[in-house]
């Protein structure tokens, strides 16, 4: 259940950012989470409800945007789409690919007041 740690880290960032920029409350948070990131989205939403209490974000809505898994297959020398770390390349069936996107865990944007 490291989703709670992730949410505590998000709340810390929100607290610092709102203070630094002179705002008092966070209304909405947009996260970008890669499809292959080590995060359970339901657990993240649940943990956020707990972590936001009595903070600058205590009524903040959470919007999660999922980013697709992207990789480069060394054997095919081309970009491919992947859904799991153990997916074979859809073109050659091999596993010699390197992930180029899809493991992000990022705070993209905030709505503050």
């Amino acid at each position: 259940m490291h989703e709670l740690s992730l949410c505590e880290s998000i709340i810390e960032t929100l607290t610092v950012q709102t203070q630094r920029q002179g705002f008092s409350r966070v209304r909405r948070v947009w996260l970008e989470i890669g499809a292959l990131a080590n995060v359970e989205l339901d657990a993240l939403r649940f943990a956020f409800e707990i972590a936001r209490r009595d903070t600058v974000a205590d009524t903040a809505e959470l919007d999660i945007v999922t980013l697709p898994g992207q990789a480069y297959c060394l054997d095919c020398a081309q970009a491919i789409a992947v859904h799991q770390y153990y997916d074979p390349c859809p073109c050659c069936g091999g596993f010699q690919w390197r992930l180029t996107g899809g493991n992000e865990m990022r705070i993209k944007e905030l709505e503050v007041e």
């Binding site: 990022r106 705070i107 503050v112």
Partner: peptide, 8 residues
Amino acid sequence: RLALEQDI
């Protein structure tokens, strides 16, 4: 709206 683009 504040764009952050920061890793969690």
